[in-house]
């Protein structure tokens, strides 16, 4: 039972006047870096029906990023591409399940994740607050771009139809779904579950649970940094990126989510510019956001837009 009307919550996040200019510069800087993809077939992870590849490419700051790419062996014509983005403390999965459904599926390991941590490894806990006093050094500046470059990887594949690319993820993957859909107009459909990285500063008052508690820990030991932290995070907050989203999108939240408070999910959803948007709010559910049922909703939504 909801403790408050989460959909009525008013976020304290303020949108910086120059946020679009900031991100346009970061995107332009990223675009100048050659992707230099390396695609290595994995006999160990492939099956008679699915080919699996280890992928590596270059992202912002010339950090080398890893990922898993899975495609069905039998195909008639180009495939829709699906970018799968990972949760905060999970390992990016091999997306065979999406390949079985007819997608060319890429699962990215942004910087700091295993296999992408040789040049940058702030650890967990740690990633959320790394460089948090400066928008130009904050960990998620590169992390967001690493996910965006997954779109570039898919666009470069002969077997992928560049007009049918989607993105999906849960928790941090939900947050990355928001940022990627905001930054990349090539995204034609987005499905975000229990989105993280929305209402960062709201969340440290709404919940005492980790990972947001990392920010509270930081501010407790660096009390003089609060304004800098708040200023930085405003550029990265999904609530402030949502006005850039133009594609069809669905969002799910659990009304008893103690990890990513539903209040912040609603605030982000309300800020999405796209008229084609739908919220699935599940009472009686926490951070799972009723995945057991929502999975079928996501499947149908993506299929209706991407036509696997």
């Amino acid at each position: 039972m909801p403790r408050l009307a989460a959909d009525k919550y008013v976020s304290n996040v303020r949108r910086p006047d120059d946020i679009d200019e900031f991100w346009d510069d970061v995107l332009a800087e990223t675009a100048q870096i050659p992707l230099d993809p390396e695609v290595v077939h994995s006999p160990l992870r492939s099956t008679p029906q699915i080919d699996v590849f280890e992928v590596f490419y270059t992202s912002l700051d010339n950090v080398r990023i890893a990922g898993w790419y899975a495609v069905p062996k039998e195909r008639n014509g180009p495939l829709p591409g699906l970018l799968q983005v990972p949760g905060y403390n999970m390992e990016p999965p091999i997306p065979k399940n999406w390949a079985r459904k007819g997608y060319a599926a890429f699962s990215v390991a942004p910087r700091g994740k295993l296999r992408s941590n040789r040049q940058f490894n702030p650890g967990y806990p740690g990633l959320l607050t790394y460089g948090m006093v400066d928008r130009n050094t904050y960990s998620y500046r590169g992390f967001y771009m690493d996910a965006c470059r997954g779109v570039d990887f898919l666009l470069g594949r002969d077997e992928v139809d560049g007009d049918r690319i989607g993105v999906t993820g849960h928790s941090q993957g939900g947050g990355l779904t928001i940022s990627t859909a905001a930054f990349r107009p090539e995204i034609k459909a987005a499905a975000a579950g229990a989105p993280y990285l929305c209402g960062y500063m709201d969340s440290i008052d709404l919940t005492d649970a980790y990972p947001y508690q990392e920010i509270a820990d930081y501010l407790r030991t660096n009390p003089g940094s609060r304004q800098q932290v708040e200023d930085t995070l405003a550029y990265f907050d999904g609530i402030n990126l949502a006005p850039r989203i133009q594609c069809p999108i669905i969002v799910s939240v659990g009304l008893q989510d103690s990890t990513c408070p539903p209040e912040t999910g609603f605030a982000m959803f309300n800020a999405i510019a796209s008229a084609d948007k739908k919220m699935y709010a599940y009472d009686g559910h926490g951070h799972d956001a009723n995945n057991a049922q929502q999975g079928a909703v996501i499947d149908a939504f993506l299929a209706s837009h991407l036509h696997p």
Partner: peptide, 14 residues
């Protein structure tokens, strides 16, 4: 998985 937290994600720090 590779990550170990002080207390599990989403549980009360209290």
């Amino acid at each position: 998985g590779s990550v170990v937290d002080l207390v599990p994600q989403g549980t009360a720090n209290g």
